[in-house]
């Protein structure tokens, strides 16, 4: 799967939590949870959504690695092959 497709899936998931989010304005290195005001409950649901769409299990220990859009795309890209 291409990085662009992964990004699209991430954006769709985030948009369902933060409908007002403008992804063109979002810097790829910014902290997504802070920028979009996503709490731990919403973040867990977001990861569950990624798990369902991409079939990747994200261990809890990896949550802290997933801070920015770049982090998310790279992490998922490495695991979708």
């Amino acid at each position: 799967m291409k990085a662009m497709d992964i990004r699209k899936i991430i954006e769709t998931g985030l948009a369902s939590i933060a409908p007002e989010a403008d992804f063109d304005e979002l810097s790829p290195t910014e902290n997504i949870r802070e920028e979009l005001d996503i709490d731990s409950f919403d973040f867990l649901n977001f990861l569950i959504g990624l798990n369902e769409k991409l079939g990747i299990d994200i261990p809890e220990a990896d949550y802290e690695k997933l801070v920015s859009m770049n982090d998310l795309v790279n992490y998922l890209d490495e695991r979708t092959g």
Binding site: F41, L44, L47, I48, N51, D57, E60, A61
Partner: peptide, 17 residues
């Protein structure tokens, strides 16, 4: 909690709260 969540799929994990 970490040990318990490690054995579970993401859907079954508990939030610390």
């Amino acid at each position: 909690l970490e040990e318990r969540n490690r054995q579970r799929s993401i859907r079954e994990r508990l939030l610390p709260v």
